[in-house]
Nucleic acid binder design. Structure first.
Length: 564
RNA sequence: GCCCCCGUGGCUCAAUUGGACAGAGCGUUUGGUUGCGGACCAAAAGGUUUCAGGUUCAAGUCCUGACGGGGGUACCA
């Protein structure tokens, strides 16, 4: 289904073609994209286009004159009441109010699919996000990543893409070695065997707890193995346990993954070696200082792929992250055949983007098929003070603690409200606060209010499923609400096309505000006989509005409560 | 030093990607319900969009420079 904006764009395109065919204007090149935007002022109608302004130079005429020439050639359409010209040359479209009122039933009939668009039909996209090291619980540091990735995936699905959510498990690097060593040390110590704690180990309490659980379940059998074997066995067991916890913690935030991709499989499958060979054949590998480097004309400096034994005595420590990223992107885009891969990364990794893109190019994958969402950091505030987070220091707030304290809805809403380009201050005190200072409840309250109206209707023995005659909806507040409901497809299209999920909370807040205004102006439930038709119409409207609110809340992964 | 992000009413942020008179929330001030949940609504005050140039019919948005804040710049992961 085409969005309103797209339909207006088509009218304009037809108008521009017509005006040329009629010879009313000199020859000009039809713009590839015709800008159409919702109007900001009521006096400008519902949608406006500055397209004639852009044509002024080529046609050597005042834009106002061009607009006036185009105007009579714009085809009529049932959803448009009036097209007008406004200085200095805008073409403004006012929607037909009778048409608007009739759309309410369509919104209601669409149910959960209202707002879906066809932008990505036939394309498969993978969103890879969170992907935190599997060496400990998820911290608040990953909360923004988790919410952004999840909602981007939902948005793309609403835009017609076939979407897969993936978690990349870094289970092959030196971090897991340190993790295994830490676990082994705690395990041995618990059994009164001396074992020094590794220098770069994980001192946090969860490692000890994990070791206790293993002692309780498995006894001392790991002490009978060679040390290296025991460490390997322990970190495998530990990672599996940690990942169960990670999945559970994320589920509390309503984040779920379709696939958990383990880095080690890149090595066991031989893809890692195959890609290294491919890079070598392409002349992208250089060796010096006992290390192997990736060299590419787009990169200022060589990037290490395989460390030297001097730096990394243990062979499993030698491949770098970048070395794995290359077979991994191949696996995504070639072996699994995704058309598009989205990576959700913190801005502290922005320096890695050019390297991965250069590597993609080097192995023959068009870099444009990779998109990196770089979101700025989150600073956590408690009592106005910044809370520092670091897994290795052992001092951090887990995602679990945050969700238990605040609940998923405020976290998700607040993580979504800002653009990814600004650093986000997450105020714990405000998030917990259930008041009008907290914007989260404003939207949910609108949904609750509608549920209240429907409960009231049921008490008055009105049929809540009635389909009223929506042509009776003519009040300005009714029409304003309907206009906003009908804007959801365009909002989803825009948010998906530009990967800007912050448009959702913005839209939800505006929709809620228009509902609240409607609620003030228009009494819904009336038992007076002369109001029966209008009550039916308004109940229909209110149900449709509830449907749209629920849709947006669900896209954001939030609850749409009937009671609060 | 170099690279990335940000700078918009007192505070936190939007602005449909270059379009019309820069919009919301919080805070402040004033008002609103003997009717569907007041976690609501309405009104007011508050702006030279950090500064200086430039491009354009049109700049918060693009370019150059300056100032301020955050992040990055390892054979760290």
């Amino acid at each position: 289904m085409k969005t309103l904006r797209e339909q207006i764009e088509e009218l304009l395109r037809a108008g521009l073609q017509q005006v040329q065919a009629a010879g009313a204007l000199p020859e000009f090149a039809l713009p590839a994209v015709i800008a159409v935007a919702p109007s900001r002022h009521e006096s400008h109608g519902d949608y406006g286009s500055p397209v004639c302004l852009g044509l002024a130079r080529e046609l050597r005429r005042p834009p106002l004159q061009i607009a006036q020439a185009v105007l009579p050639h714009i085809p009529a359409a049932d959803f448009v009441a009036e097209v007008t010209v406004a200085p200095p040359g805008y073409l403004n479209f006012a929607l037909s109010e009778t048409w608007l009122a009739q759309q309410v039933t369509a919104v209601l009939a669409a149910g959960d699919t209202w707002g879906n668009v066809a932008l990505g039909v036939g394309k498969r996209v993978q969103v890879e996000f969170v992907s935190a090291n599997p060496t400990g619980p998820i911290t608040i540091g990953s909360a923004r990543n988790a919410v952004l990735g999840d909602v981007l995936a939902s948005l793309l699905a609403a835009a017609g893409y076939a979407v897969e959510r993936e978690y990349y498990v870094n289970d092959a690097g030196s971090k897991v070695q340190h993790f295994g060593g830490s676990l082994y040390a705690r395990y041995a110590n618990l059994l009164d065997v001396p074992e020094p704690f590794p220098e770069q180990g994980y001192p946090a309490a969860y490692v000890t707890e994990l070791a206790q659980a293993i002692v309780a379940q498995e006894g001392r059998r790991y002490l009978d193995m060679p040390r290296e074997t025991a460490i390997r066995e322990l970190y495998r067991l530990g990672i599996a346990r940690v990942l169960e916890g990670v999945a559970d913690d994320l589920a509390q935030l309503r984040v779920h993954f379709d696939t958990w991709f383990h880095e080690t499989t890149l090595h066991t499958s031989g893809l890692f070696d195959a890609m290294m060979a491919k890079l070598r054949a392409g002349g992208y590998l250089v060796e010096y200082d006992d290390a192997v480097w990736f060299r590419h004309p787009d990169l200022e400096k060589d990037a290490v792929l395989i460390r030297s034994p001097k730096v990394a005595p243990n062979p499993v420590d030698r491949p770098t992250y970048l070395a794995s990223d290359i077979p991994y992107l191949w696996h995504k885009l070639v072996e699994r055949g995704f058309d598009w891969a989205i990576y959700v990364w913190g801005a502290d990794h922005h320096g890695d983007v050019p390297r991965v893109q250069a590597a993609a190019q080097a192995v023959g994958v068009t870099p444009a098929r990779l998109t990196f969402i770089l979101y700025q950091m989150v600073t956590l505030l408690r009592g106005g003070e910044e809370v520092r987070m670091s897994k290795s220091s052992g001092e951090f707030v887990t995602l679990r603690e945050l969700v238990d304290e605040v609940g998923p809805d405020p976290i998700r809403f607040m993580m979504l409200t800002r653009t990814v380009d600004v650093t986000l201050d997450f105020d714990l005190d405000l998030a917990v606060e259930q008041s009008d200072r907290n914007p989260v409840y404003y939207v949910q309250y609108a949904h609750t209010r509608i549920a209240g109206v429907l409960r009231k209707a049921a008490e008055e023995r009105l049929d809540p499923q009635v389909m009223g005659d929506t042509r009776l909806l003519t009040h300005p507040s009714e029409l304003a609400l309907i206009r906003k409901m009908l804007a959801l497809p365009d909002t989803i299209a825009q948010a998906a096309a530009n990967l800007t999920p912050h448009l959702l909370p913005l839209y939800a807040t505006e929709l809620a505000a228009l509902f609240h205004a409607f609620y003030r102006d228009c009494r819904v439930v009336s038992t007076a006989p002369e109001d029966a038709a209008l009550t039916s119409a308004r109940l229909t409207l209110v149900r449709a509005a509830k449907n749209v609110l629920a849709r947006v809340l669900h896209l954001m992964g939030m609850n749409a409560p009937d009671r609060m």
